[in-house]
Amino acid sequence: MTTPKIKKHLRILLFSAAGMFGFGFALVPLYDVFCDITGLNGKDYSRTESSTLTSTVDESRTVKVEFVTYLNKQLPWQFKPEIKSIELHPGERYQVSFVASNQSDQDTFGRAVPSISPGYGAQYLVKTECFCFQEQMLAANEEAMMPLIFYIDPNIPADISTLTLAYTLFKNEPTEVAMR
């Protein structure tokens, strides 16, 4: 009963099922690309090379920047910003430090993953220097200041009056190569 046409249909359908399995995995990079293009999801695709650096400071308004930190419970650290929030003029450079201290008796590696809300404001927070660009190491019971230098792009839409910058600090295995 298995005619060549049936075999052909079977091949096409099996191939489609395999293709859709691949599509499921393709969604992972596609999702990152989509978020990058649209600036959605509060992902911070750090614009370190800054062409807008020359732009002038907009004295007419201020934007409040709040700093929030979270610790993954596997990491035996303390991690706090020096200040909770700051009012800045767009275009004005600012340096803020985060205090991190290792509470354990072992050297540990941590990695900070940023998230900015509202998500569509993420692209206007420009970091020129950030501890989150690299993996951080703290020796046993060590305390360190972790600096962040940033400014707010003057093109930031008028309806954004507050940007919240949240860092979640995760434990990193020292052997692991940082992904981003």
Partner: peptide
């Protein structure tokens, strides 16, 4: 079914 069951299989694999 052919369009989405493989995507579920991908999700559980991940």
């Amino acid at each position: 079914l052919i369009a989405v069951m493989p995507v579920l299989a991908g999700a559980v694999t991940m």
